[in-house]
């Protein structure tokens, strides 16, 4: 575990303590040349602040948008990104890898 991971979860806890809604995104699997390994995390606050990363910047926008939805309804979701995915045209991975990201609300 990296020092970065510590800061991400601590940020999530701090944001929540400040009364903000928070979501966490975690890379749960990768195929091929993925930019960040499984376990990498991104914490998102309701105003759109985020720390950490789940890719080299390729899919963070889509993950943050989904995280804002999940903060509202509370149902966790697994999001897949990659070249074989329709979404790849919009938010694909330039490296040709595939990643699966689990997004959940901090309750």
């Amino acid at each position: 575990m990296t020092t970065e991971t510590r800061d991400i979860l601590q940020s999530a806890a701090d944001w929540q303590a400040d009364g903000r809604k928070v979501a966490l995104a975690t890379v749960v699997s990768t195929w091929g040349s993925a930019p960040r390994p499984a376990g990498s995390q991104l914490a998102i606050a309701e105003n759109g602040d985020f720390v950490g990363s789940v890719s080299g910047g390729c899919v963070e926008g889509a993950v943050v948008a989904e995280a804002l939805e999940i903060m509202r309804h509370g149902k966790p979701k697994q999001m897949d990104f990659g070249v074989s995915n329709d979404e790849a045209w919009e938010v694909g991975l330039a490296c040709g890898g595939k990643i699966s990201v689990f997004v959940e609300r901090l309750d």
Binding site: L9, Q10, Q16, T26, V28, P76, F102, E104, L106
Partner: peptide, 29 residues
């Protein structure tokens, strides 16, 4: 993730205890 679970996870980390977070991917449990 439940707040209590995150607090326990952060407490384990600051005490330098090894811990594994298990997530059921379909339900989020």
């Amino acid at each position: 993730m439940k707040t209590d679970l995150l607090k326990q996870l952060l407490a384990d980390r600051s005490a330098q205890r090894t811990v594994v977070l298990a997530t059921h991917l379909a339900t989020g449990d």
